[in-house]
Design a protein around this nucleic acid. Structure first.
Lengths: 353, 353
DNA sequence: CGCCAAGTTGAGGCGCTTCAAGGTCAGTGG
DNA sequence: CCACTGACCTTGAAGCGCCTCAACTTGGCG
């Protein structure tokens, strides 16, 4: 009975709300009713339903407001959210979806439409949970075999999962550090900015990588900005937990030490390249290391913007273009659209300075 | 009786050896005799005397050979070493001193000369021991209050102290890591080399700083070369000990973590500067951070070579010269010999890019 | 003094950035 | 459907910051 799927219906019209709930109860769901936005938000926070259905035009707090408030709370930000509305206008629909709603039902809807939409959302959520679990499993590499560690389970339960859209900022330079972010899907870039607005990428983090580690462990505030490279889901591991784990388990600490030490060595290598290698050589090395990192061994296709390439190497974007053009002429790479395919790694490696 | 000062006399001439020892015994020292170089080395290693007197011209192994072999052993490398010889030629004297001998007595010597020389060496050694102890005390910052930790005492007893001359290499890029080096006095620079021989300084370590930390903790081989900037004494902390301490004490691990994390952030800052700041600005920032690091707050005199400045910023030495000239013309710094005096920190900070 | 290493100064030129203009592609609206 | 817009990439031309090479000066040291 407790683990029946819970659905919260927020709707000011009594008839619609009650009839909707009736359908859902008959279908085997456990329903909660809220007759305005304010109550809806409260119930969402206390009940943590599995799906939320919400009208747009309501007194007190409208649907957009509800979505906005729930997005801000970590515990509710990941919940499947479906708008219900009479307005068929596309602008509203757009606005709703852009704010992070998952679906949109226009009243009047029939029973099937409703149940299908809910079923679809639940499936998606389960799928995402699988991915998150997968990511959490990967965390055990860092926390070395502490499977089922209570802290991790707590994390998993608390669902400190956050989705961010492309270009959205995760944290700004100067912000205080709340924890490290595990990238569940998508990718994140971190960069520093000069006064005149040019940016140097300090890292790109793909699935199952952590960002913000050095800042957290240094005890300082962030000295870089993190931004989603594409639509991305993140899982936040709070600072307290990391510190507790490090204090408790020396081997966890040892993992972090190794991670950081290697990081230092890498940065030093980069420093030397920046100082003394020509732009051509830096570009070649970057392509190779990107291939190493995220490409399949034989066919290596890189999908990365020119400005990111520029930011990683400290080169002007125009120069990146020119050099890639050069490389293409030499038969080292080829391009499909904006993707780069590395054809001849050996020659790339041997590019003179 | 056991803690009488021990003196080893290595000398092939029986008369001289015995008479010398007699004088020393009368003066209250405990003496050991070796009638050739080979025996001398063995006795030095087993007895670990407080001072060694050694003839130069001997059968089997001459005095230079003895000094050379003892210098290679960590346990004996720091022992006060006095040459005894009939040869008054200066070339021999030079050669002996260059190899690291501490003094030189020409036969025949009288009682006073001998006792004074020994007394002087013992005093110097005690002085150095004080400095080393001071340095070891500083290590407790890293090992957070573990005063008198048995490992540290072991270290102190084993006297893994090594003196290196200016320009001498401490370890090469690619060497496997034996431990970290605590700089007791003098200074050490670490750098990476490009194929064409240009070097980028990755660090300068003064008294009471550690070098080689990141390499040790990463578990890899050195990726940089360390060289003495001037005549320097080092204390080596073996890898095993560090690992043991990290494994045993979480707070020690936490110290290393913080050290490394800050290191990463610093390198990232440097990367941004290299990528986007003009040479003038990089130079200005470097001067300021050097002042911060090792200068007194008000009067700040920096004593550093042009080529080191060049290596730290990735600039050509000629350009360093020109820029310092510029700064001088602008009244930002002044120069006495090769020393640099910072006159106007505020203006230096505000140098445009 | 005479040597060598380190620092300075000058002239020339290359490698890269910058500015500017045009091209391409996906998304959007009429 | 096509034109429009904006983000991104490409290409060209111009300029200059910094490196390189080479000659000279300075300073430390036997």
């Amino acid at each position: 009975m407790e683990n029946k799927t819970k659905i919260l219906v927020i709707e000011d019209n009594n008839d619609i709300r009650e009839s909707t709930c009736e359908i859902l109860e008959l279908a085997g769901y456990n329903t909660f009713q809220a007759k305005n936005g304010k109550i809806g938000v409260e119930m969402a926070l206390t009940e943590l339903p599995d799906v939320i259905l919400c009208d747009i035009s309501m007194p007190e707090l409208d649907g957009f407001g509800v979505l906005n408030m729930l997005s801000k709370q970590p515990s509710t930000s990941g919940l499947p959210f479906i708008f219900l509305t009479a307005k068929t206008e596309r602008t509203d629909m757009r606005r709703g979806m852009e704010m992070g709603a998952d679906d949109y039902l226009t009243k009047p809807f029939n029973e099937n439409e409703l149940l299908n939409a809910i079923d679809c959302r639940l499936k998606k959520r389960d799928q995402q949970r699988l991915i998150v679990n997968d990511a959490l499993n990967h965390m055990e590499t860092l926390f070395k075999g502490r499977k089922g560690l209570e802290e991790l389970e707590k994390l998993s339960k608390e669902r400190k999962v956050r989705s961010v859209k492309r270009k959205q900022v995760i944290y700004y330079e100067g912000d205080s550090v709340a924890g490290i972010y595990l990238v569940v899907s998508g990718s994140v870039k971190t960069f520093k900015m000069t006064e005149d607005g040019r940016e140097l990428l300090t890292g790109i983090y793909g699935a199952n990588e952590y960002c913000g580690v050095a800042a957290l462990l240094s005890g300082e505030n962030y000295r870089e900005t993190a931004e989603a490279n594409e639509d991305t889901t993140l899982c936040m591991v709070p600072k307290d937990m990391i510190e507790e784990l490090i204090g408790k388990y020396p081997d966890v600490a040892a993992n972090f030490i190794k991670l950081l030490a290697n990081n230092v060595l890498d940065k030093e290598e980069q420093l030397m390249q920046l100082a003394y290698h020509s732009v051509r050589k830096r570009m070649a090395d970057l392509l190779l290391s990107l291939k190493e990192k995220c490409g399949s061994p034989d066919l290596s296709i890189l999908n990365i913007s020119r400005s990111n390439l520029a930011g990683m190497t400290g080169i002007a974007t125009e120069t990146v273009s020119r050099i890639l053009g050069d490389f293409k002429d030499c038969g080292l790479i080829s391009r499909i659209g904006n993707q780069i395919i590395i054809l001849n790694s050996d020659k790339l490696e041997k590019i003179k300075n």
